[in-house]
């Protein structure tokens, strides 16, 4: 009886472990989010991301813009027309950013 019970328990453990890869397979892989700078706006203005995701800003305007983080989370980047820059979000949180040249341009990332 005890032997039967142990076999059953061990079988459940094995099945449980076999299920683990299935769970990993459904976890979202890191994504790349595109934020276009166009007509003096960050589009989209708000981007929901997950830790590990990458964000790419592309300047579609004919004048330079910056992608500057509130609180200096990353070093400010100047993007001329057609240039892009990527940032990897490492931790959850709220990341507000703006254009130093045109301060009315604001955007934010929500990582969770």
């Amino acid at each position: 009886m005890f032997r039967t019970l142990m076999i059953t328990v061990l079988s459940l453990v094995v099945i449980g472990e076999a299920g683990a890869p299935w769970e990993l397979a459904t976890a979202s892989p890191p994504r790349l989010h595109l934020i276009e700078i166009q007509a003096f706006r960050f589009m989209p203005q708000q981007t929901i991301v997950a830790p590990g995701d990458r964000i790419r800003w592309v300047n579609r305007d004919i004048v330079p813009h910056t992608v500057t983080a509130e609180g200096g989370v990353w070093l400010p980047r100047i993007l001329s027309e057609g240039e892009s820059w990527e940032f990897a979000v490492e931790a959850g949180g709220f990341y507000a950013y703006f254009c130093e040249f045109h301060p009315h341009m604001k955007g934010w990332l929500e990582a969770h």
Binding site: I62, V63, P64, S80, E81, F101, H102
Partner: peptide
């Protein structure tokens, strides 16, 4: 500074 930067970019275009 913004005027110099932006108008130079537009004029270069």
């Amino acid at each position: 500074e913004l005027m110099v930067r932006d108008h130079t970019a537009v004029n270069n275009k």
